[in-house]
Computed example of a mutant assay.
Amino acid sequence: MDWLYRAEPQLCEEAPVGGDRDLVSDLMDKHKVFQKELGKRASCIKMLKRSVRDLTRGSSSADSQWLQKQMEELSTRWDLVCKLSVSKQARLEAALRQAEEFHTLVQAFLGRLCESEKALKYGVFPEEEAAVQECQSQLQELMKTLQCQQLELECIASLGEEILAACHPDAIITIKSWITVARSRFQEVRARGPEPAAGGARPPGLSRGPETR
């Protein structure tokens, strides 16, 4: 009975289980250990019920009534813990899917930002008119890409806030850090992007090609 009372707070549906992938995976591993222990005790509970039933069959003594009452309380507590265990497993599985999605979004986003940054940092603005037009077209495509990446950033921030709403205390700093990293990296790359240039001025972020003599 004491073990059941100690287990119940760990399974409370209000206890947050969201977070980053590593933390949620660790929580799942710990819950699997608990479920194994729960499974081992199931046979003990079954045997105890049978013993109490045999002892109290046909008896209406005070001791029999006390045993029956204790068994009813134990059964109720056992059923509750089993129900909460199943519920926590489902919540952990949902939290892990969410954490995996967040991890995938962040890593893919940072990877694409790196490619955009390289294009902006090492691009060359040529002298020939035809090449200039082609370069400007490439820049326009790159800016469209950055606009799409801004939408990706908004998705990351939104999912991160959703995770934080039901986040395990140990994962709050990690999730907030990844959101901050994604935002700061986007701002760094976006700052390299060209602004509308007047009078054919060279867009910033690109180097002028070698001059012909």
Results as ranks from 00 to 15, higher is better:
residue 2 D to V: 04
residue 4 L to N: 00
residue 10 Q to S: 12
residue 13 E to F: 07
residue 14 E to L: 12
residue 25 S to K: 03
residue 26 D to S: 15
residue 28 M to A: 08
residue 29 D to N: 15
residue 32 K to C: 11
residue 35 Q to K: 11
residue 39 G to Q: 11
residue 42 A to H: 11
residue 42 A to G: 05
residue 44 C to V: 13
residue 53 R to Q: 14
residue 53 R to F: 03
residue 57 R to G: 02
residue 59 S to H: 04
residue 62 A to K: 13
residue 64 S to D: 11
residue 64 S to Q: 05
residue 65 Q to N: 13
residue 66 W to F: 10
residue 67 L to F: 09
residue 70 Q to T: 07
residue 72 E to P: 00
residue 75 S to F: 06
residue 75 S to R: 09
residue 76 T to V: 12
residue 79 D to N: 15
residue 82 C to E: 08
residue 84 L to Q: 05
residue 84 L to D: 04
residue 85 S to N: 05
residue 88 K to W: 02
residue 89 Q to V: 06
residue 91 R to V: 02
residue 93 E to P: 01
residue 93 E to A: 12
residue 93 E to C: 08
residue 94 A to V: 03
residue 98 Q to V: 05
residue 100 E to K: 11
residue 109 F to L: 08
residue 109 F to E: 06
residue 110 L to I: 12
residue 110 L to N: 02
residue 111 G to D: 12
residue 112 R to H: 13
residue 113 L to V: 07
residue 113 L to Y: 00
residue 114 C to L: 12
residue 114 C to I: 07
residue 114 C to T: 10
residue 116 S to M: 10
residue 119 A to G: 05
residue 119 A to M: 10
residue 122 Y to D: 11
residue 122 Y to H: 14
residue 123 G to H: 04
residue 125 F to P: 01
residue 126 P to Q: 10
residue 127 E to I: 15
residue 128 E to G: 06
residue 134 E to P: 03
residue 134 E to H: 09
residue 136 Q to D: 09
residue 136 Q to G: 02
residue 138 Q to C: 09
residue 142 L to W: 03
residue 142 L to F: 03
residue 143 M to F: 04
residue 143 M to T: 07
residue 150 Q to M: 07
residue 161 E to I: 03
residue 162 E to F: 06
residue 168 H to F: 00
residue 169 P to F: 05
residue 170 D to V: 04
residue 174 T to D: 11
residue 175 I to L: 04
residue 176 K to N: 11
residue 177 S to R: 15
residue 177 S to F: 09
residue 178 W to C: 03
residue 178 W to Y: 15
residue 178 W to H: 13
residue 179 I to T: 06
residue 180 T to H: 14
residue 189 V to K: 00
residue 191 A to Q: 09
residue 191 A to C: 08
residue 192 R to P: 01
residue 193 G to T: 01
residue 194 P to K: 02
residue 195 E to A: 09
residue 195 E to Q: 14
residue 197 A to L: 07
residue 197 A to M: 09
residue 201 A to T: 07
residue 203 P to K: 03
residue 211 E to L: 15
residue 211 E to R: 15
